[in-house]
């Protein structure tokens, strides 16, 4: 491992440690804010593994949140274990397995599509799965499913889920960072830039996309399970939500599509903005998010990190006495 990689791992570990420690001191309200940030950051990272690395924009990623949530709820209702470790492991394991299976089944046909076609096909996948969850009595999506309270009595539920989701988002970032540094990551970047050229250079584009889709779906499913466990009660409408798909995209976009920090920064900013500052206007949440998308596309196409980078370059370029940017 290079010195730089070691450094980033150390910094990441320190950040996670710091956030975990914060969990012991924060008020219940702030714990809930943190939890929301982690959940949406984790989903955004899950989306980013396909959407950011390979620029295959899924507009139906909520399907994995929904499938993960339902898998967790249904298994935990069927097998009633004692002890939170076993319960969480079962729920999360079932969620990840179900999402991975779904991803594996639809990957080959759907990833043959490019651009708009992939985007809208994912929208259709989400629509169909949501309908199935409502329509088939086994899933009980229209009545709703109750999940057991998995938090141990000795820990406040907010704190418990704060730590759980912190753990999950750490895992998500670690997986994404590993992919980005691995051969697979370079294959995905090549696909993002020019899929035909990538293929002619020997990149097995189909396999790369399928692997990314699997990782992406599984991580999103994991976040879906935690989302459901934290809610305690789910229906089709609460977990198969177009708004969730949108949030994943918007978080990545607001932060910037250039690096893994993008979805993280975006999740922090957007959660604080929509849930905390505009918390009193919850019914306008969708409209606000929609307007932010429009604003970002027009004003900051490279996201907040892109803006920051540009500003930084301008400052530095000014000091050096000349524009560094050849454009």
């Amino acid at each position: 491992m290079s010195a730089r990689a070691l450094m980033s791992v150390a910094l990441g570990a320190a950040a996670v440690g710091g956030l975990a420690w914060l969990g012991t001191v924060l008020s219940p309200f702030h714990l809930r804010v943190g939890l929301s940030i982690f959940l949406s950051a984790g989903m955004a990272i899950g989306w980013y593994i396909l959407g950011g690395f390979a620029r295959y924009y899924s507009f139906g990623h909520t399907v994995f949140v929904g499938v993960g949530a339902f898998a967790a709820a249904l298994t935990l209702q069927t097998w009633r274990f004692d002890g939170w470790v076993l319960q969480v492991a079962t729920g999360v394991g079932a969620a990840m397995a179900a999402s991975a299976v779904l991803a594996a089944v639809i990957a080959l046909p759907i990833l043959r599509l490019r651009g708009h076609y992939f985007t809208i096909a994912m929208l259709a996948v989400a629509l169909v799965c949501a309908e199935a969850a409502s329509a088939f009595p086994v899933f009980r999506g229209s009545i709703g499913l109750t999940l057991p309270d998995v938090a141990p009595p000795s820990v406040r539920p907010e704190r418990f889920f704060y730590w759980m989701s912190l753990g999950a988002v750490t895992l998500a970032v670690a997986v994404a960072a590993l992919i980005a540094r691995a051969r697979l990551g370079y294959g995905l970047f090549a696909i993002r830039e020019d899929e035909d050229a990538a293929q002619m250079l020997g990149v097995p584009t189909t396999r790369c996309k399928v692997l990314a889709f699997l990782a992406s779906g599984t991580i999103t499913g994991l976040m879906g399970a935690l989302y459901a466990l934290n809610l305690g009660y789910i229906t089709t409408d609460s977990v198969f939500r177009g708004a969730l798909s949108l949030d994943m995209i918007v978080n990545s976009l607001v932060g910037g599509m250039g690096s893994l920090f993008g979805p993280l920064v975006g999740a922090v900013v957007m959660t604080l903005l929509t849930k905390v500052m505009l918390g009193d206007f919850l019914e306008y949440h969708l409209a606000i998010t929609g307007l932010i998308v429009v604003a970002i596309v027009f004003l900051a196409p490279d996201g907040l990190l892109g803006l920051a980078e540009k500003a930084w370059r301008r400052v530095r370029g000014g000091n050096a006495g000349g524009g560094a940017d050849p454009r």
């Binding site: 995209i249 306008y284 969708l286 998010t289 929609g290 027009f298 196409p301």
Partner: peptide
């Protein structure tokens, strides 16, 4: 949106505005 960004930007904008109206 198409001029500034890409067809994907246009896609996002149409998606965003549709949410505004549905809301």
């Amino acid at each position: 949106a198409v001029r500034r960004g890409s067809p994907v930007a246009a896609l996002l904008v149409t998606f965003g505005l549709s949410l505004v109206v549905v809301n």
